[in-house]
């Protein structure tokens, strides 16, 4: 994962609520065995509409998307995060996110910034004319109009994002602890620990 520090640029003032992962990337795009090239299918059905905000020239290559409540609800498809990344989106600002989407975004270095609705509304307004800056270290969203909004982030996620850590590598380094746990389980819950085998 690439390290994340500051994300700055125009932000797509999308604003819709309950955006599900079928909207972000329809199922027909899931028949791939790679992570690349999904940007073409990102928000496909919305982008069929002429004059849609995603394809407006002023928002070309915007690194930020602003959305409504419960962004990314629905399926666990990480293709949603891959498609957004391929579209150039590095951060999403919304009042709330679905748990699985937030996790998938994080694993791909996409920052999910949860702010109260009134601050999101303000940013939707600012985004129409001006760029927005997200400073991960300071946990702050700022605008040229002097708006300053602080956001919370899980400290572990922040560390992984700022240092670009490989989470699988981190956990593999804890192998001893995992082995100890497995030893304990063999004694206390052998029916789970011993692995799946079929009864005769």
């Amino acid at each position: 994962m690439e390290a994340v520090a500051t994300i700055e640029g125009r932000a797509i003032p999308f604003g819709a609520k309950n955006v599900d992962t079928d909207v972000i990337i329809p199922a027909r795009w899931l028949k791939t065995v790679t992570r690349e090239g999904l940007g073409e299918g990102a928000f496909e059905n919305l982008r069929k509409a002429p004059g849609n905000v995603f394809d407006a020239p002023e928002f070309a290559d915007s690194p930020i998307l602003i959305a409504g409540d419960n962004f990314g609800c629905g399926s666990s498809r990480e293709h949603a995060a891959w498609a957004m990344l391929d579209l150039g989106i590095r951060a999403v600002i919304a009042p709330s996110f679905s748990d699985i989407f937030a996790s998938n975004a994080f694993k791909n270095g996409i920052l999910t910034v949860a702010l109260p609705q009134e601050q999101v509304d303000r940013l939707l307004e600012v985004a129409r004319t001006s760029p927005i800056t997200i400073d991960l270290e300071e946990q702050r969203v700022t605008t040229p109009m002097q708006d300053r909004f602080s956001f919370d982030i899980d400290p572990f996620r922040k560390k992984c994002l700022t240092e670009g850590l490989d989470e699988v590598g981190l956990t593999l380094a804890r192998d001893e602890a995992i082995q100890e746990y497995e030893e304990r389980r063999r004694r206390h819950a052998p029916w789970l620990a011993m692995g799946v085998r079929e009864n005769a």
Binding site: R35, S76, A81, S103, N104, F156, T171, L172
Partner: peptide, 22 residues
């Protein structure tokens, strides 16, 4: 619970996940 593909990779490699309690 459902997980994304990066978490699938994490579970395959380590049989664990890094999670915050719900």
């Amino acid at each position: 619970f459902g997980i994304g593909t990066s978490e699938v990779e994490h579970v395959l490699a380590t049989q664990t996940l890094l999670l915050s309690p719900s």
